[in-house]
């Protein structure tokens, strides 16, 4: 396949970029349900500290997780600029707390470079790649892998049908 053909078959992917501490991240925009300000949540007993609790999203009880705590980036402060991105992943709704949402970026496949093996807070399993946008390095997160990972423990994997 020639280079020209390759360009022809390229698809533009849209990502929502957000900020955690000093770092720029982005995730596939099709997983985003909505973006809203941070509101107080109801604590869940005996949950890890990065799971802030649950809130009522129009009748759905939705867990809110703070990736800053989980991956130790930046300081987990909650103010009027703190943003929650509501995600729709694998038929579930999960909210993630971020320091800010910056932009929607469009990337060609060839603009996405493979993720480094080390050097970022996220395990490379959860990374889709890296991209440069206006001098900044943006880390593309594979949000589906991250949210459904056993590391976050958001989903009951073995106990779903177990005894109640």
């Amino acid at each position: 396949m020639s280079a020209a053909e390759q360009t022809h078959f390229q698809t533009k992917n849209e990502f929502l970029s957000f900020v955690l501490g000093e770092e720029h991240y982005a995730l596939d925009i099709s997983a985003v349900k909505e973006i809203r300000g941070y509101e107080p949540v109801t604590k869940i007993a005996n949950a890890p500290d990065f799971i802030k609790g649950v809130l009522n999203l129009r009748g759905d009880i939705v867990p809110i997780i703070d990736l800053r705590i989980k991956f130790n980036v930046g300081a987990p402060v909650y103010n009027e600029f703190t943003i929650v991105i509501m995600l729709n992943v694998l038929d579930r709704i999960v909210g993630i707390v971020v320091d800010g949402v910056s932009d929607v970026i469009r990337l060609n496949d060839d603009e996405i470079r493979p993720p480094p093996e080390f050097g970022v807070a996220f395990d490379s399993r959860y990374l889709q790649g890296l991209a440069s946008v206006e001098e900044n390095m943006v880390i593309l997160v594979n949000i589906e892998h991250l949210i459904s990972s056993s590391e976050l423990g958001l989903f009951d994997t073995h106990n779903q049908t177990g005894d109640l």
């Binding site: 007993a45 009748g59 423990g153």
Partner: peptide, 11 residues
């Protein structure tokens, strides 16, 4: 409301 729908069972 079910907690399991978007999260998991809580003891």
């Amino acid at each position: 409301k079910s907690l399991e729908q978007h999260y998991r069972k809580v003891p």
